[in-house]
């Protein structure tokens, strides 16, 4: 089932399926390890619910929900 990354609950795992971000930003996301086909897990949200920390590519990257919305996962 297709979903956006920001809707992942803490502790939930998924696989990146597509990036909807514009060109320059897409490159950054790919370099951070958000590559289609790659597993990703939501770890936890910051104290005010945003940003959220994700386990990806063997390390932890925090993204704001508005940016995570542009990453499709399933």
């Amino acid at each position: 089932m297709e979903n956006t990354l920001d809707r992942l609950a803490a502790g939930e795992r998924a696989t990146v399926s597509a990036l909807l971000a514009p060109e320059g930003e897409r490159l950054r996301l790919l370099e951070l390890g958000f590559v289609p086909g790659r597993p990703v897990a939501a770890l936890q949200a910051a104290p005010w619910g945003d940003p959220v920390a994700y386990a990806v590519c063997g390390s932890v990257i925090a993204l704001r929900r508005s940016d995570a919305r542009r990453i499709l996962v399933q």
Binding site: A21, E25, R28, L29, L32, V60, I61, A62, R64
Partner: peptide, 11 residues
């Protein structure tokens, strides 16, 4: 507009 934000939380 705010730019894209990413931050590594190192070990």
């Amino acid at each position: 507009l705010p730019s894209a934000f990413s931050l590594e939380l190192p070990p």
